[in-house]
Design a binder for these strands. Sequence first.
RNA 1: GCGCCAGUAGCUCAGUCGGAUAGAGCAACAGCCUUCUAAGCUGUGGGUCGGGGGUUCGAUUCCCUCCUGGCGCGCCA
Length: 551
Amino acid sequence: MSAGVEDLRRELTRAAVSLGAPDSIVPLLERPRDPAFGDWASNIAMVLAKSLGLKPRDFAERLIAALDRSAAGISSAEIAGPGFINFRLDAGTVSRGMLALLEASAHYGRSGVGAGRPVVVEFVSANPTGPLHVGHGRQAALGDAISSLLEWTGWNVSREFYYNDAGVQIENLALSTRARVQELRGAALAIPDGGYHGTYIAEIGEQYVAEHPEDAAGDDLDALRRFAVAALRQEQDLDLQAFGVVFDTYYLESSLYEDGRVDKTVAALIASGNTYEKDGALFLRTTDYGDDQDRVMRKSAEKGGTFTYFLPDVAYHVTKWERGFTRAINVQGSDHHSTVTRVRAGLQALGVGIPEGYPEYVLHQLVTVLKGGEEVKISKRAGSYVTVRYLIEEVGRDAVRYFFLMRKGDSQLSFDVDLARAQNEENPVYYIQMAHARLAGIFRVGEIDPAGVTGAGVDFGQLALVEETELMKALLDFPAVVANAADALEPHRIATYLHDTAGRIHGWYHKAHVLNEPEEIMRARLFLARTAQLVIKNGLALLGVSAPDRM
RNA sequence: GCGCCAGUAGCUCAGUCGGAUAGAGCAACAGCCUUCUAAGCUGUGGGUCGGGGGUUCGAUUCCCUCCUGGCGCGCCA
């Protein structure tokens, strides 16, 4: 956590408890809006005063009297307004924190609350029926950043991609490919209902014929299916590569059928007594677990007698648990939010000890794409949609990543392609990268090795500008920001923090010259430049965005 | 009809466990380059935090209700 703050929190707790507060009290410490108030503020006196039968300001006074300032690492504590207590950290606390920052360097911001426990983060999980579209892009950026946040807070993360390579949609893919193959031979195009109309299917059809001259008519549906799936998987892999996202595992839906897990799961659910048959179909009593209606697991014979999608989904999540992932996070589009209750219900119905909130879900709102001032409809059927690859080629990987991460997942996102392209010079990601590049420029021009900067001999008294003290405070906040963002599974907090911190760096850079200043000043400012650079670089790394030394 | 998400400056959005004068970028206006990157900095203007009620020392934040928008509610996946 932020250097000094935990000491202050601990000492504040001790003092409050000694005055009669409950042991469980955790004082809230926050940055005052106005830095003139101090470094940290607490409302603890207002929270506790009533239950202790005191006026807030009176209680605050006793609390301050009970504080051991040196243990708390503060130089002053003042009562303000209705009963806030404003604290100022002593100089030693700040300088120790800054030295610890440099010491940690590339590791600064990491913490160990995860204690090496395993967590599986599932994201993208696109069906192999087309290239990745802009919605997958948001999910890829979000899932990867959440994974990084968890890694930075000590979790043992596995990034997983679930492939729906079984079932109706793959059958439709095979049939659509066959229709294209037959079209090549002069037949009228006959794409089935629920099939795929995109022109990329035609390209796959051409490749198939070229590589399978023995089946120029497309009679072998099995071979067509395998070929099309392989081709689209490769396309998606290339998309992910271009985006810089690497998965640890790919889990195939088809394997759940092959190894009997689907059948086993049905049997277990029936044995649990949570199912019933109606109109020839097998239902699971999901209403017992909060769903608004019971769901079909296996269709009636007249509908084919096959399983609905959600059964293999349950079987799949059982494997996550059995593979030792006591924590599982699914990143999905909000259009799938109805599956949340269902999957959890299925896992609970099995009664195998999986906790109620398993898996956790991060749902993001959908992305609309604007182009030429008009919304581009994302439709696989019509074959018209904006791909991840296109966005990357247009505005670059860093900008795409940052755009997808700068907003809360709960907010709808409208990605204006023209604007993103035209915005090249006013893009927030460049603003942040520029802060890093400017700092790197100081070392380059001064011919100083940034890695050689040490805290030795730095006189922190030289860093007395408001821009400098405020920047140091921001830098010392970074670990707490990372921890909070990881806890909330909200990478946009890192983006917001970086933008704010970059602004402080630009302001400082403009005001405080570094090179060719008197020795003491230059040494202190080089130290600040180096530490600020590290924080920006670490933060951008968390988001999967590069931190160039020169722009 | 029911469920989930959202509604904050002209636009796009932040706002942590309820705190002090609600913030940033873009857009607008006025300034700043012989010194480490002007992809930058400084300043100005701009708000019924969707409406109404409630809880309390205090509500953008919590509760209720209504309005608006997106998504979902299938023996599709």
